[in-house]
């Protein structure tokens, strides 16, 4: 049971109010028609599965219904930060 800081509600809430929507920062190609099948397949199906720092997209489903991003350690389950859509993470695997 994660304890998640919703950047929109500005407080911690219990995990059961949220849904994880998978890897964050997957931008839809601006010109899908220009993508090869391989490129489109990459966008559709291929996801990172890192050991350690991972950026995920979540929604505060039972709360404000807003999406946001989370930087999470997949080993310890520590949540390093949550941040709004359009913002960049301050914690990355490189940092």
């Amino acid at each position: 049971m994660l304890h998640i800081f919703c950047p929109h509600c500005a407080e911690y809430r219990e995990e059961e109010e949220f849904h994880s929507k998978g890897q964050a920062h997957l931008a839809r190609p601006l010109d899908p028609e220009a993508c090869s099948d391989a490129e489109w397949g990459e966008y559709l199906y291929f996801r990172k599965n890192p050991r350690g720092i991972h950026h995920e997209l979540w929604i505060h489903a039972a709360g404000c219904r807003k999406f946001f991003n989370m930087t999470r350690d997949t080993v310890t389950y520590e949540i390093k930060e949550t941040y709004k859509i359009g913002e960049k993470p301050s914690v990355t695997a490189q940092s």
Binding site: R13, E14, E16, A62, G63, C64
Partner: peptide
């Protein structure tokens, strides 16, 4: 202390 009067939450 964390849920004062007039606070509103949408929740489960």
């Amino acid at each position: 202390s964390s849920f004062p009067n007039d606070k509103v939450v949408s929740t489960v």
